[in-house]
């Protein structure tokens, strides 16, 4: 049984200082599905995504109202440790950002910081994660070379492998293909479709085709508000709101 409100965003508002970036967002993100966040630049997609692992806590002067629940538990519960939360929520960024380490050390980073250093376990994790990220065959002979020797697409898949190495429940992706060429993009998209068997995926994208190709549900944000949220097919073929219609038909960006 999968849960329909695995991530429950409840009446959530978010402020950068005086500036309100999100207005009363309410949405339920289903387990082991791909949910796409679309909308014009600056509408608050990244802000919403980055609140799901409390990455925005790093910025000074931010505050929020409302709540986000993960499998029923509030992220903002004072008892929640941010570090353990982030272990359950992996994240992939717009620009691939491997560490200045070997491929191997990149993948096992999250285990190392958790104090898990047994060689056998790490070896297993490296192979499993790289296979899941569809990268194993390409890098299995270069595990101990610098990660910077890989191509851009490979580096991004390495970042995906790194994000899933510690077996999180959720995978957040902020425009993961924005810096990649079309071939690499297609690879990542098919990877996303595979990964949803294991993970609940939330993906921010600028690319409408990408949303239709790999997401089950789509949320359209506009000026910090959730305008429309539903099955991808419905949102794209039969949008209920005028703004959604205007956006997906490319009348504004």
């Amino acid at each position: 049984m999968t849960r329909d409100d695995f991530i429950a965003v409840e009446n959530f508002s978010f402020f950068y200082g005086e500036k309100q970036a999100l207005h009363d967002i309410d949405m339920a993100i289903p387990e082991r599905r791909v949910t796409a966040l679309i909308g014009p630049s600056g509408c608050g997609k990244s802000t919403l995504l980055r609140n799901m692992n409390r990455m925005n806590d790093l910025i000074e002067g931010v505050r929020h109202r409302g709540d986000i629940r993960l499998n029923g538990h509030s992220l903002y519960d004072p008892k929640v440790e941010v570090i353990s939360l982030r272990k359950r929520v992996g994240m992939v960024f717009q620009k691939y950002n491997p560490f200045a380490k070997t491929v191997y050390e990149n993948v096992v980073f999250s285990l190392r910081v958790a104090g898990r250093n047994r060689k056998r376990e790490l070896d297993e994790v490296v192979e499993r994660s790289l296979r899941s990220a569809a990268l194993w065959d390409e890098v299995k002979d270069r595990l101990h070379d610098s990660a910077f020797g890989l191509s851009g697409g490979q580096q991004q898949r390495l970042c995906i492998a790194r994000a899933i190495a510690n077996q999180p429940e959720i995978l957040l992706m902020d425009e993961p293909c924005a810096a990649l060429d079309p071939t690499a993009t297609l690879k990542i998209e098919s990877l996303i479709r595979e990964l949803k068997e294991q993970f609940t995926i939330v993906i921010v994208t600028h690319n409408m085709e990408q949303a239709t190709r790999c997401s089950d549900r789509t949320a359209f944000l506009y000026m910090g508000r959730l305008i429309e949220y539903g099955d991808t097919k419905q949102v794209f073929e039969n949008p209920r709101e005028e703004e959604t219609e205007a956006y997906i038909s490319g009348r504004f960006s």
């Binding site: 570090i83 982030r86 994240m91 960024f93 620009k95 560490f99 980073f109 910081v113």
Partner: peptide, 12 residues
């Protein structure tokens, strides 16, 4: 990005 990646991996 590099710092955020490390933190997102659960690093303190």
């Amino acid at each position: 990005g590099v710092r955020e990646a490390a933190l997102a991996c659960g690093a303190s």
